[in-house]
Design a protein around this nucleic acid. Structure first.
Length: 573
RNA sequence: CGGGAUGUAGCUCAGUUUGGCUAGAGCACCUGCUUUGGGAGCAGGGGGUCGCAGGUUCAAAUCCUGUCAUCCCGACCA
């Protein structure tokens, strides 16, 4: 490709809308342009990176036994009504009507449509297991799209669905995909970690997320330095139980705490540490008010709470409802004497001795609160968020914390969709069973952004060779110099003939500008031809990810470059 | 959806408080000359319904009302 013909419009300045490195650099280097909030156009360079990612994904999916299909983006409402998700998905689904007023949606995911296909085409155990996948646009009308490609409303996803006759079959499919995903992300050059994950609204019972480690990631995860335990904090189990306090239980006593409402205020006012407080938080779980108790220095984990309660919707209760239930405003509520509201306490709560909690009376707290004696919770459970440094639930070594970008997730769905949609098979005895399903997603466009988050410097992107839009860029220092132009043209022709993906920067621009742009775009390998190198019979060769520039002989250059590329590519196998 | 902010040239922004000349700058773009190993210099040039719609006024980028869009924080979420 000649740079003079390549549409790669670079921006000198950082677009005001972009906050994080991947968004800024993909815009500046001319890979993407925004069409609307959360909706992007991929320019030629961006399209080439996507193609590289997709190729790696296809190879790994095919190797694991997957078969590629293309499912429709526009899906009929009936299927979603059958599964019950037409209502559940709510505002996040893009909906539309055709000219006959029939309802459709733009597919936010494809479980329904693939299950419908399989129920009509698969009837026998002889047809199982089956792994079907596609690489397709997905549509989710996010309330708040952000961070460029990391959270869009239209995005590219690889989704594979596995169909097995039983749980053992699903376990095998799941293991295959887990391995395939590890291969994909390793080949993309990502520093990633699979973590145990919540199964969320999609349902199912077992799941891992593949996290690309990045400080800009939206997900928080913990992992063990000693063993291979790693989990999203949403579900990471808290195992640390506090040491018993050797203190004599005292009498319950009301203390005036005028104007002191938060944990920080109350603990400072009373001169105690926050871990002596009981925080009482009210939620509405599918419309029912519940009280949750947690130690003052801890954070409640809403995912754990929701999973424990088994409710569909969980929201913080309105302050008015809290007051109606307790007789006191938020900030002064507590478990002692609380009536008519189920109370769920974190597992640490029973270890507290002489704690402080709200008195259910404005301006007052209770001291000397002793769980069990002064109140009884309806249930105790692990409801708090795990923190860095706590012991690993598996081996006890300290946990570390990191942020990650969720680039993939694997789920065991079970029979949720096959039952809802009637996808069954007949076994050897002629009995009918629901097909056991799994689903496995990779955010392709998000992966592109994640790679940039991990591979960039102050000058621009540093693409891993495996996903770079081109492998090599050729920069002649001056095109006006016929000798340089001819030398560059010759190398370009040879590289093309050798099957190297190469851009020849044949634009009549200053060399400095070409270097700056090449660094911004992130071509892995750069060949520079100048006056000096011509005299020496050499070409300057430089990896984008290294500082050192090498002067290699012009003679035998192309085979040498091919060998360098092959060696570099070994990193991504 | 709640809170905050911003919409002026392709991009980054000034001008809006206190209404008043032909609406500005830098970058980008076009032409010419010079330059040519890290986003060149000089000269000339093109490009703007000031998001949109109403309103107030002799006069609106500027004030008022509505509306749309975009971004940030939060809530929510495969």
């Amino acid at each position: 490709m000649r740079a003079s013909e390549l549409l790669a419009p670079t921006l000198r300045e950082i677009p005001a809308e972009a906050e994080i490195a991947s968004h800024q650099l993909l815009l500046r280097a001319g890979f993407i342009r925004k069409a609307a909030a959360g909706i992007y156009t991929y320019l030629p360079l961006g399209r080439r990176v996507l193609a590289k990612l997709e190729r790696i994904i296809r190879e790994e999916m095919d190797r694991a036994g997957g078969q590629e299909v293309v499912l429709p983006i526009i899906q009929p409402a009936e299927l979603w009504q059958e599964s019950g998700r037409w209502e559940v998905y709510g505002e996040e689904m893009f909906r539309l009507r055709d000219r006959h007023q029939r309802q459709f949606c733009l597919g936010p995911t494809h479980e329904e449509i693939i299950t419908a296909l399989v129920r009509s085409e698969v009837n026998s155990y002889k047809q199982l297991p089956l792994l079907l996948y596609q690489i397709q646009n997905k549509y989710r009308d996010e309330r708040r799209p952000r961070f460029g490609l990391l959270r869009g409303r239209e995005f590219i996803m690889k989704d594979l669905y596995s169909f097995d006759r039983d749980q053992e079959g699903l376990d095998r499919s799941y293991a295959k995909m887990y391995q395939a995903y590890s291969n994909v992300f390793r080949r993309c050059g990502l520093d990633f970690r699979p973590v145990q994950a919540d199964t969320g609204a999609i349902g199912g019972n077992y799941s891992h997320e593949f996290m690309a480690l990045a400080s800009t990631g939206e997900a928080l995860l913990v992992y063990c330095q000693e063993c291979d335990y790693a989990a999203n904090v949403e579900i990471a189990a808290a195992r640390a139980l506090p040491k018993p306090v050797a203190e004599t239980p005292q009498l319950l006593q009301e203390v005036a705490t005028p104007g002191q409402k938060t944990v920080a205020e109350v603990s400072a006012f009373l001169g105690i540490t926050p871990d002596r407080l009981i925080k009482t938080v009210f939620y509405e779980a599918d419309g029912q008010l519940v009280a949750v108790l947690i130690r003052g220095d801890r954070e409640l984990n809403e995912v754990k709470l929701q999973n424990y309660l088994g409710c569909r919707h969980l929201t913080l209760a309105e302050p008015e409802k809290v007051t109606a239930a307790t007789g006191a405003p938020v900030g002064y509520v507590g478990p002692v004497g609380l009536q008519g509201v189920p109370v769920y306490a974190d597992a640490e709560i029973p270890y507290l001795v002489n704690a402080v909690a709200g008195a259910n009376r404005e301006g007052y707290h209770l001291a000397g609160v002793n769980p069990g004696r002064d109140f009884k919770a309806d249930a105790y459970a692990d409801l708090r968020q795990v923190e860095a440094g706590e012991p690993c639930p598996r081996c006890g070594a300290p946990l570390s914390q990191a942020r990650g970008i969720e680039v993939g997730q694997v789920f065991q769905l079970g029979t949720k969709y096959s039952r809802a949609l009637g996808a069954t098979y007949t076994d050897e005895q002629g009995r009918e069973h629901p097909i056991v399903m799994g689903c496995y997603g990779i955010g392709v466009s998000r992966t592109m952004a994640a790679v940039v988050e991990q591979h960039h410097d102050e000058h621009g992107i540093i693409w891993p060779l495996s996903v770079a839009p081109f492998e090599v860029v050729i920069i002649p220092a001056s095109l006006k110099d016929d000798a340089q132009r001819e030398a560059a043209e010759g190398i370009y022709a040879e590289l093309l003939a050798a099957g190297v993906e190469v851009v020849f920067d044949d634009r009549d621009e200053r060399a400095g500008m070409k270097f700056v742009e090449a660094d911004l775009i992130g071509y892995p390998l750069r060949l520079t031809i100048g006056k000096k190198t011509l005299v020496q019979g050499t070409v300057d060769v430089k990896w984008r990810h290294e500082g050192q520039e090498l002067a290699l002989p012009r003679e035998g250059l192309v085979p040498r470059v091919k060998a360098m590329l092959a060696r570099e590519m070994e990193k991504y196998r």
